[in-house]
């Protein structure tokens, strides 16, 4: 595997195949927990951890996979790593894990992970899969954090609980509500599409 291929595999997940802004997968956490930057960052990191580990393990055992049992094996692997991540969060980031609530265990059914297992890990070598997991995971974290920044800034006038906007700014409650998540996501996707279309015209 050449170096440039690895780089393109990495950047692919970051931008061209960004899970929540381009592929529109993994919508549940994207909409549900991006009401604050801290939540979004933690969620993104936890997902990235699970993604990298599951990609690596699946890639290592890919030659032994029985076609009809593969989903079962994926779920087994993903569930294990999610449980580990959940316990770690509860032990070392207790308040964070409380505010994420059921969304950490729900990473198991996040289709970003299953999609990468099918698209990449089951077909390519461990190094490529690892890099792919890292790229997609970072892309996911990035888009979640972007939404989190916008929503927390307008919804609670702060970023990472640090107040940015003055007290005279009346917080827009809608931004921390689910409806605000849909609005923000729609507008951000619109912006991303605009940027991508401009790039295509230039190219």
């Amino acid at each position: 595997m050449s170096k440039s291929n690895l780089v393109s595999q990495f950047t692919n997940g970051l931008w061209a195949e960004n899970p929540s802004l381009v592929m529109l997968i993994g919508m549940c956490p994207t909409l549900a927990i991006t009401n604050s930057v801290a939540n979004a960052l933690t969620m993104g990191m936890a997902t990235m951890f699970v993604l990298v580990c599951s990609n690596l393990v699946i890639s290592l055992i890919r030659s032994q996979l029985q076609a009809h049992l593969r989903i079962l094996v994926y779920m087994l692997i993903v569930a294990t790593f999610v449980t580990v991540a959940d316990y770690m969060l509860q032990a070392y980031l207790f308040t964070m894990s409380q505010s994420l609530g059921p969304y950490v265990p729900l990473i198991i059914v996040n289709c970003v992970i299953l999609a990468r297992a099918e698209i990449c890990a089951a077909k390519k070598g461990p190094v490529t899969s690892f890099v792919d997991g890292l790229g997609v995971g970072l892309g996911f974290t990035f888009s979640l954090t972007l939404l989190g920044v916008i929503r927390e800034l307008f919804g609670s006038r702060s970023i990472l609980n640090y107040q940015i906007l003055p007290d005279s700014f009346e917080p827009w409650v809608v931004m921390v509500l689910p409806s605000g998540a849909f609005l923000t996501l729609g507008l951000v996707i619109g912006l991303v599409n605009y940027l991508r279309s401009r790039k295509r015209v230039e190219a």
């Binding site: 032994q64 996979l65 079962l72 294990t80």
Partner: peptide
């Protein structure tokens, strides 16, 4: 068919 699932389950 199932050895992989069994082994993985044990390890995990």
């Amino acid at each position: 068919q199932i050895w992989l699932v069994l082994v993985l389950s044990l390890i995990f």
